Structure formats: C-alpha cells, structure tokens
Amino acid sequence: MPSMIVIAATAIPDHLRGALSRWLLEVTPELYVGSVSAKVRDELWSSVADSTAAGTAVLAHPADNEQGFTLRTAGTQRREPIDFEGLTLISFRRESQETAKPF
C-alpha cells in the first residue's frame, strides 16, 4: 500500500535528482514529496544514502508510533534525530574546537 514520503536532499548529483523526479514531485529545489510503496521508498533511500558524499539527506515516512512518522538521515548534519523514550527529538551538534571560527 502506498504511503506519503518526503525527502529533503542537498548537494546531490543530477542523476539522482532525475531518479527521484521519476517517482516523486520536486515541490521546491531538492525537496521531494510523493506516495510510493515501502519497497520503492527503501530503494530510493538506498540510492540517496549512497550518493550523499558531500551533501545531506533526510527521509520522513509514516510509522506505527506515537508521532506517526519516522526519520532517516544520510550525510553529515548538524541536526541529528535521537530517540527519547519512544519520541524522536532533534539534537544539535556543536561545532568542534578544530572547526570553530576564531573571534
């Protein structure tokens, strides 16, 4: 049974944008929305996760939990989903001392 998914991806190759556009609508640049089966969702996510070397990506799809959805991420992101007693919360990573800009 198809369910709605949302994929937000940055700095992905053009061939992947084309592949995502075959299954989903690109409602704004690099934001894809559509209804697909779980198998298609997993195949699309596999392609996205394998192609986000320099970029980032987030997938939101329905799940049988309190919030009604779950998140998957790929690439290095400042925001990281964490499980807090069954709820997904977003944790922000701090910049490390090596990458922090001097005043």
Rank of each mutant, 00 (worst) to 15 (best):
A100F: 03
K39Y: 03
D50S: 13
S21Q: 12
E85H: 11
T99Y: 10
L20K: 02
N65Y: 04
G86V: 08
L59H: 01
D42G: 01
T56C: 05
A54F: 03
K101V: 14
F103N: 01
M1R: 02
P102I: 01
H15V: 10
T76C: 06
V40K: 06
P62L: 02
V40L: 05
K39G: 13
R41P: 09
S21I: 02
Q67V: 07
L71M: 01
R72G: 00
V6Y: 08
P81H: 08
W45F: 07
S37Q: 00
S21C: 09
V33W: 06
Y32Q: 05
I5V: 13
T28F: 11
G18R: 15
A57L: 00
A63N: 15
L24M: 12
L89E: 06
L44D: 00
A57V: 00
M4T: 15
L20Q: 03
T99A: 10
H15R: 09
E98H: 12
P2H: 01
L87E: 13
L59M: 03
L20W: 00
Q77L: 14
E80P: 04
L87S: 09
S21N: 14
I5Q: 01
A49V: 02
L44H: 07
P13T: 01
H61N: 04
I90K: 08
E30R: 12
I82E: 15
P29H: 14
A19N: 04
L16C: 01
L89T: 05
L24I: 07
A53K: 13
Y32D: 07
W23S: 09
G86C: 04
T70F: 11
R22Y: 08
F84H: 11
Q77C: 14
W45E: 01
S51E: 09
E85T: 09
S91I: 06
P2W: 06
H15F: 09
T56V: 11
T99D: 13
L89G: 01
A49F: 03
V58D: 00
L59F: 01
D42P: 05
V33K: 11
V27R: 15
S96Y: 05
A74K: 02
L71I: 09
F92T: 14
I5P: 08
R78L: 13
R79K: 08
G55R: 00
G68L: 07
A9M: 11
N65M: 07
S46R: 09
A53H: 04
M4L: 13
T73L: 02
G34I: 11
R17W: 02
